[in-house]
Design a protein around this nucleic acid. Structure first.
Length: 590
RNA sequence: CGGAGUGUAGCGCAGCCUGGUUAGCGCACCUGGUUUGGGACCAGGGGGUCGGAGGUUCGAAUCCUCUCACUCCGACCA
């Protein structure tokens, strides 16, 4: 491709609204341009990179036996009603009506569409398994698009769906997709981790995310410093804690005026925060009701909301305000698992520890859940709120509190221990892929069934597999660029080689450059030749911004039979004999 | 959806507080010339009605009201 005939509008100036380098360079390099919040045009360079990535994805998936299709981008609303997601998905769905007043929406993901397709065409176990995928535009009306292609509203995604007659066969396909995804991301030269991810209310035995490591990533992942454990912080679990400083007070009520924080209390009583029970009150939202739930954890642990939501099987949990706490008969800042005998107390259901009379929160119809780390801690007693203003209970044994449910509720910290004995580290990641076992989550409500070997009707067992294709452009850019511009790998670069003609007015130089260009084209390389009437420095800056891995500078040295090769990563130049150019490129760019 | 901010030429910005000539600068663009291995220089030139609507005023980019868009922080994110 001749630069002079191509469309690469590069700019020297930094666009106003870019905050991360991938966004800046992709914009300045003429790869993308913004249309609206989270909606981008792909210019020729961006389009080429997108194409390269699509080819790699397609190639590996086809090798793994998946079949490419294209599903409609506009999807009938009724399918979403059928699956139950029309109401659940909410404002992210961009809905509209056609001239006949029929409701549609732009597909944010295509489970409904694929189930609708397959249920009508596949009726027998003999046609299973089948894995269908597409690489297509998606639309999600994100509340807040940001960071260029990292979180767009309109984006390109590869979404695949597999159908099986058994969970065992789904497991096999799931593993195959995990391996296939790894190959794809390795080919793209990405530094990534496969981590356990939240399976949410869908349950099932597996959900794994592929995270490109990057400081600007929106997800936090927990990895072990000595084994290959990795998990999204939403789901990461840790080894049971070793508590060295145990509190041994006997049970009593302590006046703790105005000490409502963990720090206040632990400083005042001179105990370690891990010996204080932290109460986190939330409002749990269910399909048909809302209720106040109290989560208890160690004072130096943090509630992980995704885990908490899953622990009580809620659709969502939200913060409560002071009034809601009051209405629940709780004392903000002094909340504990028991209510002491006082005016609100009837004599029913009371318990006694020593001379203290109490009843538990669940007698007030407040559900409480304890963190799993508190289970089987008979050798410890805790400080907790007394549900009475300015009072805490000291020396509270947990085994005296009735009906405790223990669940994993905490956010893994960097100091926490892995099962293998190693220590956890937190990293930021960009989610570039997600594979998920759906089982019959969609086939059941959408009545997508087949006949098994015994002639019995069964719902399809499904898996779903996604790759953020346009997001990958940003992920690669974030990982590989430097302070001068983009740096592409061999597989993702828009061109294999960029030839920089130092001075097009010098016939000898231009001719030699064209000769090399034509030879490389004939040998099947994708080459950009900068034949613009610009000065040398200007062209070099553009080369560095655009980021092709190899540059060939054709300049004065052609008279001595030489050109210069520039390595985009190191920016080092070295002389190469004209006769050796083709063979060297074949060696380097293969 | 809460908080903050920004809309003036293709891009980046000044002007606004304290209304008053043809709205200015840099980059980019066009013409001519000189330069030519690290975003050149000189001269000339084209392009905006100041996000939109309404209002105040003799007069509005500038003051007021409403509105739209975009960005950032947070909430949200199969």
């Amino acid at each position: 491709m001749r630069f002079s005939n191509f469309f690469i509008p590069t700019t020297k100036e930094v666009p106003k609204d870019t905050v991360i380098k991938s966004h800046e360079y992709l914009t300045r390099g003429g790869y993308i341009s913004q249309v609206s919040a989270g909606i981008y045009n792909f210019l020729p360079l961006g389009h080429k990179v997108l194409g390269k990535i699509k080819d790699i994805v397609r190639d590996e998936l086809n090798k793994a036996g998946a079949l490419e299709i294209t599903l409609g981008f506009v999807t009938p609303h009724e399918l979403w009603v059928e699956s139950g997601r029309a109401s659940k998905y909410g404002k992210e769905l961009l809905r509209f009506k056609d001239r006949k007043n029929k409701e549609y929406l732009l597909g944010p993901t295509h489970e409904e569409m694929i189930v609708n397709l397959v249920r009508g065409k596949v009726k027998s176990y003999k046609n299973l398994p089948i894995n269908l995928y597409q690489i297509n535009t998606k639309f999600r009306d994100e509340a807040r698009a940001r960071f260029g292609l990292i979180r767009g509203r309109e984006f390109v995604m590869k979404d695949g769906y597999s159908f099986h007659e058994s969970k065992e066969d789904l497991d096999r396909e799931f593993d195959l997709m995990e391996k296939t995804y790894s190959k794809i991301f390795k080919k793209l030269e990405l530094d990534f981790r496969i981590v356990e991810a939240d399976s949410g209310a869908i349950g099932g035995s597996g959900s794994k995310e592929f995270m490109a490591l990057s400081d600007i990533g929106e997800d936090t992942i927990v990895i072990c410093d000595s084994c290959d454990y990795g998990a999204n912080i939403e789901t990461s679990s840790r080894q049971r804690r070793e508590i060295s400083e145990k509190n041994e007070s006997s049970l009593s009520l302590f006046s703790t005026p105005n000490m409502s924080s963990i720090d206040d209390v632990s400083n005042f009583l001179k105990i370690h925060p891990s010996n204080v029970l932290k109460a986190v009150v939330k409002k749990a939202i269910f399909e048909d009701k809302e209720e106040i739930v109290c989560f208890f954890l160690r004072g130096d642990d943090e509630l992980q909301e995704v885990k908490a939501t899953n622990a009580i099987n809620a659709d969502d949990i939200v913060d409560v305000n002071e009034e809601e706490i009051k209405n629940a008969n709780l004392e903000a800042g002094f909340i504990g698992p028991v209510i002491l005998k006082d005016s609100k107390f009837s004599d029913d259901d009371e318990n006694t520890i020593g001379d203290m009379k109490f009843k538990s929160l669940n007698k007030l119809e407040i559900k409480y859940i304890f963190d799993i780390d508190l289970k089987d801690r008979e050798d410890e007693v805790f400080v907790c709120g007394a549900n009475k203003k300015d009072f805490h209970i000291v020396g509270m044994p947990l085994n005296k509190i009735p009906d405790i449910t223990y669940k994993d509720l905490t956010t893994s910290k960097e100091s926490d221990k892995c099962k293998c004995g190693g220590s956890y580290l937190h990293k930021k990641g960009i989610e570039i892929g997600h594979i998920f076992k759906l089982n019959d989550k969609y086939s059941l409500p959408m009545k997508a069934n087949f006949l098994d070997k015994n002639g019995k009707t069964q719902p399809f067992i499904m898996g779903t597999y996604g790759i953020g294709v346009s997001r990958l452009i940003s992920a690669i850019s974030e990982q590989k660029s430097d302070e001068k511009g983009l740096i592409w790998g061999k597989t993702s670069s828009p061109f294999d080689v960029q030839i920089i003609v130092s001075d097009i007015k010098c016939e000898n130089i231009l001719n030699k450059a064209n000769e090399i260009y034509n030879q490389l084209i004939n040998d099947g390389f994708d080459v950009l030749i900068d034949d613009r009437k610009e000065r040398f420095g200007f062209k070099m800056k553009d080369f560095e911004l655009i980021g092709c891995p190899i540059g060939i500078i054709v300049g004065q040295d052609v008279d001595n039979g030489e050109v210069s090769f520039v390595d985009r990563v190191s920016l080092e130049k070295r002389s190469v004999r004209l006769d050796d150019v083709i063979s060297e490129i074949k060696e380097q760019a293969k």
